[in-house]
C-alpha cells in the first residue's frame, strides 16, 4: 500500500493505492473459466488513534484500488490505515501528514 497525506489550508488530502487483483468473481479468464472473487472488503483510517473513516467495499471497486479522502487536520498528524480483503489478509500502513 502506498499513501500520501498532504495538508493545505487546514484540509488534508489523503491518497491511497492498494496493489490488489480485486477480482469481482464475474470475470472470465482466457480459457473461459470464471476467476474466483477476491477483493478488498473493509478499510479504516485512524487520525492520531481516533476513527476517521470506516469503509466497506464491494467487488465493483477496480483492480489496484486508488482512493482519495479529505479531512480537517494539520502537518505531523499520525495516520493509521488498515484494509482487509476477502481472504482476511490485512494491509496496514502508517504515515504522518506533510
Amino acid at each position: 500500500m502506498r499513501i500520501l497525506a498532504k495538508e493545505d489550508g487546514g484540509i488534508v488530502s489523503l491518497k491511497v493505492i492498494i496493489p490488489h487483483p480485486n477480482e469481482s468473481g464475474t470475470r472470465k479468464d482466457e480459457s473461459g473459466k470464471v476467476v474466483p472473487a477476491y477483493f478488498i472488503r473493509e478499510g479504516s483510517v485512524l487520525l492520531n488513534g481516533q476513527p476517521l473513516f470506516e469503509l466497506q467495499l464491494g467487488p465493483s471497486v477496480s483492480k489496484d484500488p486508488f482512493l482519495q479522502f479529505r479531512f480537517a487536520g494539520k502537518k505531523g498528524d499520525r495516520l493509521n490505515l488498515r484494509f482487509i480483503d476477502s481472504r482476511k489478509l490485512e494491509y496496514v500502513a502508517e504515515a504522518a501528514v506533510v
Binding site: 484540509i11 469481482s24 464475474t26 487520525l47 481516533q50 476513527p51 476517521l52 473513516f53 470506516e54 469503509l55 466497506q56 467495499l57 464491494g58 467487488p59 465493483s60 471497486v61 477496480s62 489496484d64 484500488p65 486508488f66 482512493l67 482519495q68 479522502f69 479529505r70 479531512f71 480537517a72 487536520g73
Partner: peptide
C-alpha cells in the same frame, strides 16, 4: 453493475464528505 453497492463509508471527527475511487462498470 451485478453488485450495485460500490462502497459505504462512515465519517467520524474531522472527516469531510468526500471520497474518490476507481470503479469497475
Amino acid at each position: 453493475n451485478i453488485t450495485p453497492l460500490v462502497f459505504s463509508c462512515a465519517l467520524h471527527g474531522g472527516a469531510l464528505p468526500f471520497l474518490s475511487l476507481t470503479v469497475k462498470m
